[in-house]
Design a protein around this nucleic acid. Sequence first.
DNA 1: GTATTTGCAAATGATTTGCAGTGCT
DNA 2: AGCACTGCAAATCATTTGCAAATAC
Lengths: 132, 132
Amino acid sequence: MKNKFLLQHHQLKATPQRISIIELMEYSGHISIDDLFKEIREKFSSISLATLYKNIHSMMSVNLIREVKIPGQKAKYEIEKIPHAHIVCKTCGELKDIPFDATRLLEDTIKNSDYRADDVSIMISGICPNCK
Amino acid sequence: MKNKFLLQHHQLKATPQRISIIELMEYSGHISIDDLFKEIREKFSSISLATLYKNIHSMMSVNLIREVKIPGQKAKYEIEKIPHAHIVCKTCGELKDIPFDATRLLEDTIKNSDYRADDVSIMISGICPNCK
DNA sequence: GTATTTGCAAATGATTTGCAGTGCT
DNA sequence: AGCACTGCAAATCATTTGCAAATAC
């Protein structure tokens, strides 16, 4: 129900496919198109990749979700939420959030450049505990 | 000459194509495969995209260059250099460096998580002076 | 001289598009 | 009812691969 409203508040029709996309993103944190496709087929066996791509685009265009690009990997998608940084493991590729408030960084940037900055995305890479 | 050594120090053969790739990256700061292809054809009219892709990969695998992924754009490539953050204009897509030392951020992350962090990439987005 | 690299053409993989039918509001 | 959305198939675009000839060292 919550996600139905979430979609409607962003002027998108609340189709069951879209609701399911949001649920899967909430559950996984970040998900690639391929994994999304695999998961969502369990519920909608006839869904097409084209539909996923179209929905990802419409949801991005209203800032409901965000694309996370990672060097050497396919893009992942996540629901817009509170400020955080990303940390990706160089070995296994796992992506995690860590709490990080970039407000300060943004303010500094605004001070030191003539850009009107409004968003920061931070990608840290390293080796995760499991792979160490 | 400098770039010939740069390649050799990374155990790559210094072909004229590779030297030219490095020159173009130095000149442009960040460049996409397509732009690289357009530019480099002026010098090597018979160069193929396959060669570019292959070289980009070999140069990345020895950390001579780095891939910069930007949401909504194709990847760009740049020579590894001193720490900086990226700022991209949401309107015209222009990408710029701003000086930024992420050492502190890295240290904090190491303290607060059990990852062994070794690299940070920061992408700020906003509106550039020209587009304001 | 030998191993690597180049450039071509073809294969593969990812994303987008057009369109007819369906479903949300 | 009307417009947006879905799913299919086909088109397009991006990247990779295999291989023979060329080149760096």
